[in-house]
């Protein structure tokens, strides 16, 4: 599976709370960040967690978010960042 995004791309995290295992924390859903790097492609844990084979493999990215964007009342300096690994199917172009 070829990767849809590259470093520097702006992405928005999809919203969702499916009644199964998923790896995208609620706090980051709906937020807009910047792709920092593509880690590679990995078996999809959302399938593996339910006995599936995890295929097709999903591109996995590290995405960077400005802390004040993630939290309305971030108590630290605005330069602080949050980095989180997110699978491609949870991302859309922003």
């Amino acid at each position: 599976m070829s990767a849809r995004f590259k470093a520097g791309d702006r992405v928005k995290v999809r919203l969702g709370s499916p009644p199964r295992h998923f790896r995208t924390p609620t706090y980051i859903q709906g937020k807009i960040g910047t792709v920092e790097r593509l880690h590679g492609t990995y078996r999809n844990p959302e399938s593996l967690a339910h006995g599936g084979d995890g295929l097709p493999k999903q591109p996995l990215y590290r995405v960077r978010f400005a802390q004040p964007h993630v939290w309305g009342k971030y108590p630290g300096p605005p330069r602080d960042q949050l980095l989180i690994d997110i699978y491609e199917h949870w991302l859309e172009p922003a």
Binding site: Q67, G76, L82, L83, D85
Partner: peptide
């Protein structure tokens, strides 16, 4: 210090 960028890494996946 405030001029240092604090980066939280939330390791949710295979890293």
């Amino acid at each position: 210090p405030p001029d240092v960028e604090v980066r939280v890494l939330d390791s949710t996946a295979d890293m």
